[in-house]
């Protein structure tokens, strides 16, 4: 029985709604506040993977919900943004999610083997999101606590990402950088 460096869990299904809109005019803030959510500052994460918001780009948020609540979230957002240039789409079925658990240094090391992103705790503290490249595909990840990270990617490459993570987390492959 091998003993991998960290534990990699499939966190699907996760409710995810992507929102593209003008985020700074107050409308988005009040629309999300209605659902008990808060717009994060750039690169930050608010809430939890069951009910939270990821800052994806200056005009894009990813709203995380419980798996069966994403359609209702889309309806709420469409109502709130009616008449403005905006887009809210339920992308739950188009994304895979993984939960990484283990010693903080090892979780960072496993990710650092696959991504060019700066994984030092000072650069990627708990609650900061990084959208980047994981080997050959796009992914986004953030730390929810010490030694606990969430990772999302496109569902079409979910199997590839799981295999990648499993490979670089194999027993005996620690580098000890962090």
């Amino acid at each position: 029985m091998s003993d991998p460096l960290i534990r990699i869990e499939d966190a699907s299904p996760m409710g995810m709604v992507t929102l593209r809109a003008e985020l700074n005019d107050g409308k988005a803030a009040s629309a999300l506040a209605f659902s008990g959510l808060e717009i994060p500052a750039p690169h930050q994460v608010t809430g939890t993977p069951e009910k939270g918001v990821l800052w994806m780009s200056p005009d894009e948020l990813m709203i995380m919900t419980l798996p069966d609540a994403s359609d209702a979230m889309v309806a709420t957002l469409n109502e709130a943004f009616e008449g403005t240039h905006s887009l809210a789409v339920n992308v739950s079925d188009a994304r895979s999610a993984f939960r990484l658990k283990g010693r903080d240094a090892l979780v960072r090391e496993v990710l650092a083997k696959l991504t060019p992103a700066d994984m030092r705790p000072a650069s990627l503290p708990v609650g900061r999101l990084r959208r980047t490249r994981l080997a050959q595909v796009p992914a986004a990840f953030w730390f929810t606590g010490d030694g606990e990270a969430m990772l999302i990617c496109f569902r079409s490459v979910g199997g590839y990402v799981f295999d990648l993570l499993s490979k670089v987390a194999e027993e005996g492959t620690e580098v000890g950088y962090f």
């Binding site: 690169h43 780009s57 200056p58 060019p116 990084r130 490249r133």
Partner: peptide, 10 residues
């Protein structure tokens, strides 16, 4: 736009 220091491969 987003302020990330991107590696060339990103």
């Amino acid at each position: 736009y987003c302020g990330v220091a991107c590696d060339e491969t990103e």
